[in-house]
Amino acid sequence: MFHPIANIEDAQTLAQAIVNTIVEPFLVLDENFRVLAANRSFYQTFRVDPEQTHGSLLYALGDGQWDIPALHLLLETIIPEKTAMDGFEVEHDFPDIGRRTMLLNARKVLYDHSSAATILLAFNDITARRAIEREKEELLGRTEDLLRQKDVLLREMEHRVANSLQIIASILLLKARSVTSDETRQHLKDAHQRVLSVAEVQRHLHASTGADEIEVGSYLSKLCSSLAASMIGETQAIAVNVMAENGRIDSQKAVSLGLIVTELVLNAIKYAFSTEKVDALILVTYETDAEDWKLTVSDNGWGKPVGDIPGAGLGTAIVEALVKQLEARIDTVTGNTGTTIAVTRATFTSRMPKAA
């Protein structure tokens, strides 16, 4: 059963107890902004004397340190119009405690049987929070600056790598022309072509915006187009087509796939069509199924037994190493209608056609 408070002294005692229970600094002001009550947190936080606080004008507390323009605006302009305000931010340099940032919550209490009004004012010190936010903003700014620097350095490195690869390729070609051994000359030409292949993969990755992820269809199409333009002679017309499902792959995977495709396409160009063939075709397909994928390079050349494929030594070793790195497997099917080499991650049922 509810028992009303018998007298005003008991009501004041209860009110002061409630005020002291509030954890954040808290003030009760009259309509003239004089302090009617303050809690312990207010005295401890702002280091003011209780005897000099009670009954004093808020703006005069602490030798005028509370004479804050933003506080005038809140109490004299905003509160009379709205009667309530939450999250009003005030920043001020207090002589005893230093610079503080506070969120003020204010309420104007009106009474039914009196023209007097009371203002409740609560302070939430967010100085530490704002300091952390500023540190995070500064850290973010420095991080963005470092990322810009990294991007510039990466582009410079890519440019130098491309130039270095071109120089190495040129040296290998010059050396191949100067040696007398046909076998050594062929090895040097193969090395020259592989360096160019690496340079081609690197060039396409460099041209891709975003760097972290590559659009696989566009990437393989441009790569194969470049390989065909540089390797297919006028005496034998060989079409190199690409069929790839939409999707993006990370740059590291793109490098490995690009080198595999380069090796297999070059091998098909050089060995699949030992004699001229009408409608000669090399088809590169790429399919995905969630995390699984399948890369296939097939041709409609004359085909030979797997163990009798020319140049299968170093090229096969390179491809097998890359396939192992991708945690995939490689399968080769060859016959008199052509050769199909499939690189598959996990179990995958192909939906793409083969060269025919």
Rank of each mutant, 00 (worst) to 15 (best):
H72V: 00
L73W: 11
L73H: 15
L75A: 00
P80F: 01
K82M: 01
K82D: 05
A84H: 08
M85E: 00
D86H: 13
E89W: 03
E91I: 08
E91N: 04
H92V: 01
H92Q: 06
F94E: 01
I97W: 05
I97A: 03
I97F: 06
M102R: 00
M102W: 05
L103C: 13
N105W: 02
H113Q: 08
S115N: 12
A116I: 04
A116F: 01
T118S: 06
L120W: 01
L121G: 00
A122V: 09
N124D: 09
I126Y: 05
T127D: 02
T127Q: 06
I132F: 10
E133T: 03
E133R: 05
R134Q: 15
E135W: 09
E137H: 11
E138W: 07
L140K: 10
R142A: 08
T143K: 15
D145K: 14
L146R: 13
L146G: 03
L147F: 11
R148F: 15
R148I: 14
K150N: 15
D151Q: 10
D151W: 05
V152R: 09
V152T: 07
V152N: 09
L153Q: 09
E156D: 09
E156A: 14
M157E: 12
E158G: 00
E158M: 11
E158P: 00
L165E: 07
A169Q: 07
A169S: 08
S170T: 15
L172D: 02
L172M: 07
A176T: 11
R177P: 01
V179N: 10
T180K: 13
E183F: 03
E183Q: 12
H187M: 14
L188A: 03
L188P: 01
K189L: 15
D190N: 05
D190C: 03
A191W: 04
A191N: 06
H192R: 11
Q193A: 14
L196A: 12
S197T: 13
S197W: 10
V198A: 14
E200D: 15
E200A: 07
V201W: 10
V201D: 01
H204L: 06
H204E: 13
H204R: 11
L205N: 04
H206A: 13
A207C: 07
T209D: 09
G210E: 06
G210M: 03
G210F: 05
D212Y: 12
D212S: 14
D212Q: 12
I214A: 04
E215N: 10
E215P: 13
E215A: 14
G217I: 01
S218K: 08
